[in-house]
Simulated assay, not measured.
Amino acid sequence: MSEAQEYPGVGRVLVVIPTYDEAENIRQITQRVRRAVPSVDILVADDNSPDGTGAIADELSATDDHVFVLHRAGKQGLGAAYVAGFAWAKDKGYDAVVEMDADGSHAPEELPKLLDALRDNDAVLGTRYIPGGSVHNWPLHRLLLSRGGNIYIKMALGMPFRDATGGYRAYRMAVLDHIDVATVASQGYSFQVELAWRTFRHGFRMTEVPITFTERERGKSKMSGNIFKEQLLRVTRWGVQSRAQALRQRLGRDPKADSTLR
């Protein structure tokens, strides 16, 4: 590993990029991150992509000591890939991690905005649905699904955030340790909701910054109806559990912590 470089006010930063069949995108996204913030390191967490993404990532790592590759046994889902990447970051002594998609939907050129905001916060959510944020090249039905889902999440969980499902965000490692991220069982977009939910419930300083989301131009989207259903069911359960716990507290009881709400 190269000598540590720090982002001012944040420390050593690792950008975790999960991949599965992203051979058409991984070179470009890696190069853009390196140009945008040369001090950060990149970890490509590849789920044994059949299209050779992992081999391409190895080539990039061989010529750039800021790029690393975590080869995983197979496709286990977005959440599992991030949990593995966070564990790798902790083992290597990073101070903060960034989640970023491999398909170019998250602009690396906006990474400085997230890291600058992290100086005064514990977690920063890149948000499409606040002033300055935007979505490009999505069909209307998908935009409505995303907006509606986020409204439901806000109502069900009582979080103030406009975009709890977004996947472009930054966390301090201390937050991930405290919320016991290794126990997060959610996959897909509900993984992002659960991380934000746990962070919010533990009272960490959180903020949103506007981002531009652009639908991928190359490769196939991993979004499916099952992912949305999983998210809806989990959010509903968390909301019910949270309200039940709050009621028990008002009645003077001391409920045991629910492991799904850490």
Rank of each mutant, 00 (worst) to 15 (best):
R234L: 09
I151T: 11
G54A: 15
R201T: 02
Q245R: 11
K75W: 09
D103E: 12
V209N: 10
H202Q: 15
M223R: 12
G148F: 03
E59N: 10
R119P: 03
I17A: 13
M173W: 02
K92G: 04
H66R: 15
Q187R: 10
S186Q: 13
D163T: 01
R34Y: 15
T53L: 13
L176H: 00
H178P: 00
Q28M: 14
D101R: 10
A164C: 14
A196N: 10
A96I: 05
A185C: 06
A164G: 06
I153W: 00
V124L: 01
P131W: 04
N25L: 09
I26L: 04
L232H: 07
L125W: 09
H66W: 08
A117G: 10
V13K: 10
D122K: 03
F213P: 00
L60T: 11
A257T: 06
P160E: 04
A164S: 15
A170Y: 01
R147M: 03
T199K: 07
P255G: 12
R216C: 13
I17V: 15
F200R: 00
S190A: 14
Y152H: 12
P108H: 01
G225D: 14
D120N: 07
E230F: 04
V181T: 12
A182P: 00
I130H: 05
A170P: 09
I227P: 02
A244I: 09
R12D: 02
L125Q: 09
G52Q: 05
L145F: 03
G11S: 00
R12Q: 08
Q31Y: 07
H66F: 11
D254T: 11
L145D: 05
M173H: 05
G9P: 02
S105Q: 07
A244C: 08
W138T: 08
L195C: 12
V83Q: 06
L176P: 00
G239H: 11
I26A: 02
N150Q: 08
Q241R: 08
N48G: 01
I42A: 11
T63S: 09
